[in-house]
Nucleic acid binder design. Structure first.
Ligand SMILES: NC(=O)c1ccc[n+]([C@@H]2O[C@H](COP(=O)([O-])OP(=O)(O)OC[C@H]3O[C@@H](n4cnc5c(N)ncnc54)[C@H](O)[C@@H]3O)[C@@H](O)[C@H]2O)c1
Ligand SMILES: NC(=O)c1ccc[n+]([C@@H]2O[C@H](COP(=O)([O-])OP(=O)(O)OC[C@H]3O[C@@H](n4cnc5c(N)ncnc54)[C@H](O)[C@@H]3O)[C@@H](O)[C@H]2O)c1
Lengths: 223, 223
DNA sequence: GCCGTTTTGTTCTCCCGTTCACAAACTCCT
DNA sequence: AGGAGTTTGTGAACGGGAGAACAAAACGGC
């Protein structure tokens, strides 16, 4: 009798999509603490957002709460995980096994959140003797074979900035359709390929801007 | 004769602040290529944004272009750097020198973009013998002394999630007013303290969501 | 079986950010 | 000097997201 789309919710706002992983993490935390039920108020506090926003976000997925009671932690956790698509594991390749690539390869948060690193690639032959986090570092030339074999759709770029675009191009040609870029450069990719970036310098510079304003506001008119 | 605020531009929108570092990087790239002048169209293309958006963003800083000509690369670069506050170096402390902390300490992009790592701190005494990137790893207990000595206002957290909030509290108590958090947890901080987070898992999960939608759209009605 | 309490799901309004479109302003050429 | 061509800076329209406020629904007590 519901006039909504029955199970496949349509067009979730991007801002909501970006918060769903936060809710997922908050729910996992609550579950570990033995909490079986929580209100939107509690969950919102744990996730650090407004409770009205949380409820609106969840309403895009469907009606998974119970009025007067709240949400079943485990049930909601599963629904969000299913919506995001992390109920099954996503194979991931990391390209550029330098300082940052090593850290990423050793990051346990991948596995525990629905991602599995299937290969580490580097252009430098000297690196190919290394074994990092139980995986041997392989030649970048193996990219196509690995993508095909493991049906990889997500690639991580941790190479120097100058190499990033060419790596991205190779990834796209090999069939990868989602890229997470750590190199400080703007990547261009064809329609249908999602690119997200993580940029440490930008984050710091944003902090610096606000920091500077605090300093100026503090000194006011010194002359 | 300008009715604008003469030199200290007021309240730049947050979305604009987040893009200024991108423009700064694009301008640095153009300068390295020997370009002395560029139009908003060129710069926008390099930075990967709409040219109207770029012009509006720059208009918040002042009127630094010349109609019919474009922008002087070096001049605009300096103006943005000054606005962000990266014409002088900002001292930074990194707490948690594990996998990620090592990579961050070795990251050359800090120094070249207006930041100087003045100390590496870790709670584990076994780490205190290490020297990373020319800096010895010191005890977390030294935080207050270091913050006071170097007048540090920016702190980076690369500890496990469980420790992040207590580290943040100590930072705030020591006088740090801007925090960049890599731990996958929601931090709370008092008014006046800026907290930004970099969350790898969230980025990947956002990619996974869109990836899943692509897959569903491709298969349509399989039943 | 009914009423009060609790909490969700949703509507409505406001605000911020994006984009279009164009007048103002500058250069260069004749 | 004047006009054609360019490019900036900004006013205005538009769309999306945030938050307040409330109606609908479920539970519990009697
Ligand atoms: N280290 C950090 O904490 C940090 C932080 C933020 C951003 N970044 C960025 O991440 C990237 C990597 O940083 P890093 O410190 O690990 O650098 P790095 O020099 O230590 O490692 C880069 C690795 O990429 C490999 N490589 C180079 N060209 C390649 C190619 N075409 N194909 C495949 N592999 C290639 C190199 O052999 C090297 O192993 C850089 O763009 C850097 O700006 C690093
Ligand atoms: N490794 C990655 O690529 C990666 C990526 C994204 C996020 N993260 C997050 O970054 C954080 C660090 O990751 P990691 O892989 O480097 O972990 P790690 O275990 O290798 O390093 C953590 C370091 O923090 C230190 N530490 C623990 N408690 C502390 C405290 N109270 N005060 C000071 N230091 C303390 C530990 O001694 C250790 O050296 C984690 O929260 C992780 O989830 C890591």
């Amino acid at each position: 009798m519901t006039a909504r789309t029955p199970d496949s919710a349509r067009d979730i706002p991007e801002a909501t999509v970006a918060r769903l992983p936060v809710y997922l993490r908050a729910l996992t935390g609550l579950a570990e603490d033995g909490t079986t039920t929580c209100s939107s108020e509690e969950l919102a506090a744990t996730a650090g957002v407004n409770s009205a926003k949380l409820r609106k976000d969840l309403s895009y997925l469907g009606s998974y709460g119970t009025r007067g009671v709240g949400y079943d932690v485990e049930y909601l956790r599963y629904q969000i995980a299913r919506e995001i698509g992390v109920t099954q594991d996503w194979p991931v390749v990391i390209v550029g096994i330098g300082n940052l690539g090593h850290a990423l390869a050793n990051y346990s948060g991948f596995r525990s959140r629905g991602f599995r690193v299937v290969a580490l690639l580097d252009a430098d032959p000297d690196r190919h003797t290394d074994v990092v986090a139980g995986l041997e570092v392989r030649s970048f030339e193996d990219l196509e074979a690995i993508v095909t074999e493991h049906d990889v759709s997500i690639g991580v770029i941790a190479t120097p900035a100058v190499a990033a675009q060419s790596v991205a191009d190779r990834m796209v040609a090999a069939g990868i359709t989602s890229i997470l870029n750590f190199a400080p450069t703007v990547l261009t990719a064809p329609e249908g390929v999602d690119v997200r970036k993580v940029d440490l310098s930008i984050e710091l510079q944003i902090l610096a801007y606000h920091e500077q304003r605090k300093a100026v506001a503090g000194s006011e008119d010194v002359s």
